[in-house]
Design a protein around this nucleic acid. Structure first.
Lengths: 363, 363
DNA sequence: TATTGATGCGGGAACGTTCCCGCACAAGAC
DNA sequence: GTCTTGTGCGGGAACGTTCCCGCATCAATA
């Protein structure tokens, strides 16, 4: 049936892959003709084109991508690196936001014909220097990220999911942090919250600093005391401890326990919920809860937790599109794009109808 | 200082990258000599070697990896694809097991000089055909996975974290499912459990079928009735519903509620814990709980949840090592390796001292 | 019958590296 | 002084593609 032996054969000579010239010789054509036939280019008679294709198929020809890339001058390889978590270079994938951003980046890139290679968080030159990447996606860069600096110095275009402004060669898509915070706080206020607390990481990413600023502005505008608890480190442990700090009885604010919690730090929604319960809060009876999170477990808690999604898929798609445009057409404009967040309102942030006691129906 | 202009310069001509010949001409040497100097090969006088290196450094020379790869005949690219979840090709990264397996695969590969490219779950030929991958890691293949078949037909070596036996070109590392189940069940029994329930996906991966078989054998051996609830689909929702099924009062088994739960399906530990609580169980008072999971939230629940770790990092490392050995030295032996699991005993599966009531100390 | 134009195909260079050689020259042995 | 051996460096092919040409062939027109 075919010239290529099936699984078996003699394993000693790994038998070299069939090249374009092999197909050409077999078909009695030139490599130029076969190449044109397979790529659908050139001026060829239908018979010759079909002959070339049939022979290639029969011989199991697969073009050598490396040779193609060399000829094309572009590797069609995009790096993916995370700025944060440099001390634990690979944990970022365990965060739902990054998991989805990574996946969406890879999916969109692949559709565009680019392969995505995974790099460790905070990786330095040595890691990517000998990869000949066409571009690198830097997720969540810190302020003046050295990774971005190095990449730009090496003349590699950089795309980021956070704004990297004023640098030629750096493109970004960012979420509208201000609008997101306002939407969440407005929602909580509409549900009756009067003493909301904000939990936000003590980090230098633009998103977090803007969240902080937007919250301050909103509080001033609405005459609400500004209650903020800053989280020192990423991870569930520090966030949960911060939740406990935020919800603990504050002697200075006696009788004024918070009635809403907006968690901007990434943590597991069920853990946040449990922490609130341990401190004696009923959700949503005593406390309205909104988490900035992409974690799907939020839908499965009792009650389900309202989340503010940063829409990593939208960020990745928009980013890769601009990146490809830059790489292939040299579009130097539109260096920055803003993406809207999405508030998924669930029971945890909806004040129950009128009943004071939040009794659950028996199973 | 340097010949390469800084960030600015005239952006119109993207100025071609400096090649080996450029360095050679600048240094007054041949490309052969410069290549040997930079690679530390050949017979060169120390002066010439240093001269070449200095010139390359000064000109900002970075070797073209694509040309290198073409010359070397190997792309130094490893694909990574997941067999399951073909209907939602990118969700796998949200599973902690796959997130960590992916990360560890990428890390180990990179250390060995191979880049890992991410592919969608269940992807077909068209996705990877024009990438010239040296090998592909197939995570969690289903039985007779078509991906594995296609890859082997294309003569691409396959490495898997599940056993793919009897196929030349297929290498695997697997967890010792039998030992894992026995260890978990022995632990539960030692803690006093007499009516354990097993939750296991209704899937064809070898791991799950082996878990099922090992559980059956263990039950027979210990004279324990075999209680199994099969989970139809992956994801938190189906698993939680299965937990509810497993823990619901069974009229047929009246008065014999389960006293231990072994969850082999991947689900969020806090959600499993909450589900048990909603059904009126105290953990670990009424129910001992062990989850097969890599989810870090297990440490942060109250009580913390005992987990059985499949040790994805160990799997990935062992796998990439053998893969590299095959690629570089053609070691055709040791097609399969077994990795031991690890039981992280936490409070959820330790019978409390003597007190019948599981009162929590006040905060 | 010559001239043009279109059509069909192939030769060969180029992409940027690495590596097998071969050549020139110096130093030692006789 | 010639003959060997060794050292230091460079020429050129090769890796497998793509693509710019140029050369035939043949129909249509003058």
């Amino acid at each position: 049936m075919t010239d290529v032996p099936p699984h078996g054969g003699q394993p000693s000579p790994p038998l070299p892959r069939v090249r374009l010239v092999d197909v050409a010789r077999e078909a009695g054509l030139s490599k130029t003709t076969v190449s044109a036939a397979l790529n659908g280019t050139g001026r060829l008679s239908p018979e010759v084109r079909e002959k070339a294709r049939e022979t290639a198929r029969r011989m199991g020809y697969r073009p050598n991508a490396t040779a193609r890339r060399l000829r094309a001058g572009r590797a069609r390889l995009i790096g993916y690196v995370v700025g944060e978590f440099a001390d634990a270079p690979w944990t970022f994938l365990e965060s739902p936001y990054f998991a989805r951003l990574t996946a969406a980046t890879a999916a969109t890139s692949l559709r565009r014909g680019y392969a995505v290679v995974l790099l460790p968080a905070g990786s330095l030159q040595s890691e990517w220097a000998d990869l000949s990447l066409d571009a690198v996606v830097v997720a969540d860069p810190v302020a003046d990220d050295p990774i971005v600096e190095d990449l730009l110095a090496a003349r590699i275009p950089v795309f980021s999911d956070r704004s990297v402004e004023g640098r030629p060669g750096a493109y970004w898509v960012d979420v509208d942090a201000g609008a997101a915070v306002r939407e969440a706080l407005d929602h909580l206020r509409a549900q009756g919250a009067r003493r909301p607390v904000l939990l936000v990481p003590d980090s230098t990413t633009r998103f977090h600093t803007e969240v902080f600023a937007a919250h301050r502005a909103w509080c001033a505008e609405h005459g609400v005391p500004e209650r903020v608890v800053r989280v020192g480190a990423p991870g569930n442990g520090p966030v949960i401890r911060a939740v406990e700090t935020a919800l603990a009885d504050d002697p200075a604010a006696a009788g004024a326990r918070p009635d809403a919690l907006l968690v901007v730090a990434e943590a597991s929604p069920p853990l946040v919920l449990d922490a609130a319960r341990r401190l004696g809060y009923e959700v949503p009876g005593d406390l309205l809860l909104v988490c900035v999170s992409e974690d799907v477990t939020a839908e499965h808690t009792e009650p389900p937790v309202t989340t503010l999604s940063l829409r990593p898929e939208a960020i990745a798609e928009a980013g890769v599109e601009t990146l490809v445009a830059v790489l292939e057409h040299g579009d130097r404009e539109a260096a920055g794009v803003l993406v809207r967040t999405r508030l998924d309102v669930r029971a945890s942030s909806v004040r129950p109808a009128q009943s004071e006691c939040t009794s659950r129906p028996p199973t």
